[in-house]
Design a protein around this nucleic acid. Structure first.
Lengths: 203, 203
DNA sequence: TTTTTCCTGTAGCGATCACTAAAGAAAGGG
DNA sequence: CCCTTTCTTTAGTGATCGCTACAGGAAAAA
């Protein structure tokens, strides 16, 4: 065995969580290394040794976001017995999660890379792909219910998925603008009124 | 008469329109003076002499946006005979306008100041107030129809306004992510299914 | 203690940020 | 012609950007 070296003096998990919240609130480009080192309470060399560079720190923070704060959509799609119940649950959990006073409002994947210069267009594109993937997951869940006969064949799964994706993205913007949980729950209730009849029109 | 001076060598209106499109696409902070002078085809001193500074140039571009590309919402609310027709028209015109290949996609007021550092929080707040004003205008238009008896007293004007504001904001995000006009029109159609019955339930 | 190894803080790298001083150039009045 | 005015261009300003060289300190094996 070779000699042991000095150990890290800060909590990597807590530092990552603080970076996550900074990126969540202000976005990728607008969060400077200076602000990151301030909220993480470390100096730049420690940040670069532990996380690589700003891009990799953001990507790791984003992965953690998806596994924690942003995991409720995948959970609902996997656990609920019908597409309708899954989407209803997503909307109401979004109303709760997006307005939680314990962390920044809205969805990080929707709002963390909207205003980007040419140097971070890859970050922008990465988040766009995640939004597309979320919309595709909703569409596939609806298609399953159409195939199973729970929804009429006339139900347009792609259109419904695009519609509910838009509602969710709008709820995120509203939450960032200060909307309350109750207001978002009323939006969720109105959005569910667009759901197609579960019984297909008989011939 | 005093002596006459040298005249401006560039078209101020066209330069403003090009700055507008740059801000529209990349947002306030992510659009640098270097990029602005490049697309406007002028040098920094000409920009500062004609428009003041970056903040004032953005505000003037935003005013022009509201008077041109973004004027369709106010027009619909003022011209249509009912709140329902006004909102339906807004949604379908948004589907068209947000995906117009002749200019950046989405809505500038929704997306131009999402990721802001502490130095441009006033720009962020200014756009937030414009979004709140748009939502309030929708709410007041619905309230007018409730008072006129076109909608049942049970219709929650504030909730409906928040819901349609969220749908519009979601459509803007979808358009920026590459959604087609047809896709947004299907979202508009689905959103209109949440409209309350025009005839109040009789006792 | 000595040695080895890696973390930590200071201090600063080149590049880019928004912005501007200074001087040349264009236009019409005298 | 010259004069005045204001545009234009060149060439920068100090500040901040993401990032890092370097030296010193901490921890454990020898």
């Amino acid at each position: 065995m070779g000699p042991m070296a000095r150990q890290r003096a800060f909590d990597r998990d807590e530092a990552l969580d603080r970076a996550l919240r900074a990126f969540w609130r202000h976005g990728y480009e607008a969060t400077s290394i200076a602000e990151l080192t301030a909220v993480m309470d470390i100096r730049p060399p420690s940040l670069y040794a532990a996380f690589g560079d700003k891009r990799r720190l953001f990507e790791e923070a984003l992965r953690r976001y998806q596994e924690s704060y942003g995991a409720f959509t995948a959970r609902a799609l996997a656990e609920e017995p019908t597409a309708r119940k899954a989407i209803e649950r997503i909307l109401y959990e979004a109303a709760d999660e997006y307005t939680d006073p314990g962390h920044p409002h809205g969805c990080m994947i929707i709002s963390a890379a909207v205003n980007c210069g040419p140097e971070s267009s890859e970050v922008e594109e990465g988040l766009r792909l995640k939004r597309e993937a979320a919309k595709a997951a909703i569409r596939e869940r609806i298609e399953r219910d159409v195939t199973a006969g729970l929804l009429p064949p006339s139900a347009d799964a792609a259109a419904l998925a695009a519609y509910y994706a838009a509602v969710i993205q709008g709820m995120s913007t509203q939450a960032r603008d200060g909307a309350s949980r109750d207001e978002l729950e009323r939006t969720a209730a109105l959005a569910m009124r667009s759901w197609p009849a579960t019984t297909p029109p008989h011939p």
